[in-house]
Amino acid sequence: MLAYCVDVLRYDIVGCGEVVAQEHAAVLNRLRIEGLLTVRACIDTSFGRATWMAKRLHGVPAASITEAGVSGADVALIATPPEFHAELALPYLLAGRSVLIEKPFAPTLADVEKLLDAARVGNARVLVGHMRRLYPAIQVAREVVRSGVIGDIRAVEAREGGRWEWGAASPYTVRSSFGGVLFDTGAHVLDTLLFLLDLDDPAAAPTVTVDSVVRDRDTEPSHDFRARFRLCRGGSDLPVDFRVSRTEALPRSVVLHGEHGSLVVGGAFAQQPTVIARKRALRLDLPLDTPRPADATGCFRLEHEALVNPSGRPDVGGLLEGSRFVTLARLFDTLACS
């Protein structure tokens, strides 16, 4: 058991793979230097990676949460392959420790419900690292949809693809049934879609009817996934043509076709939303009245700030709150089994 006696929030990092190395580590180090947190344990089944990360962040390496113990931590980042999210986050939540879980929240609805229940029992918070919600471009686009300027949304095309280059530290992308493109890129794309349409609100959850699913191989993990489905709410159906791929370049866009024009919302941080009407593409450059992240790294910072200082970032906490991802988990369940 690790013993610590510090005043600032003590952070555990569970999973020291590429997403932590490339995205979270520098931000956590900055927050550490600013005195907002201290990294307690860096935990990974590969003790070498745990040690490497611990050296960077002035923490202590551990090979498991059993070895590290959860009681010495105040909060935790869970950044393992998705199938382990629930198993590893539950001890923290039940002990009353808030967690930030990398996307996707959990691969099944049952796991998501377990985590939300545990958060209630432990009086802890569970945030999900769907950082694209923090992109100004996506927030601007949501305001455009809410404003009604493109009219009723009649159809959606949601796509993203590119040849796979991510240097994952473990082979879970090809070994785990939750390692496929649906749970990876698809989590971003589907969440953006639900977020833009305010369908992530637990009170407004749509039902899902799947018309067709095509994969590049018979079972998950698949690396090229296409589905046509309908989101049904309030008696109306919204057809969605969804495709994500690790093998082929595709548009990096969620396109909402409204009665007055189409809104193109990109998946890259600086990809400005565009309205296309009568063959003209109009880039939207709406002013935002609050400070927003300068880049994707800034979004990671906001995630961690919302975890360590909830009252300072209530807006971010609200966007990333676990209950906002129940509909997404239901959609995963439906699509993965189709």
Binding site: N29, P136, P293, T297, G298
Partner: peptide, 18 residues
């Protein structure tokens, strides 16, 4: 490089649509 990323990391208050 890690120290540089730490120093640059997570800036706010800039126009993201540059």
């Amino acid at each position: 490089i890690f120290r540089t990323k730490t120093a640059l990391g997570g800036g706010l208050e800039v126009d993201p649509f540059e």
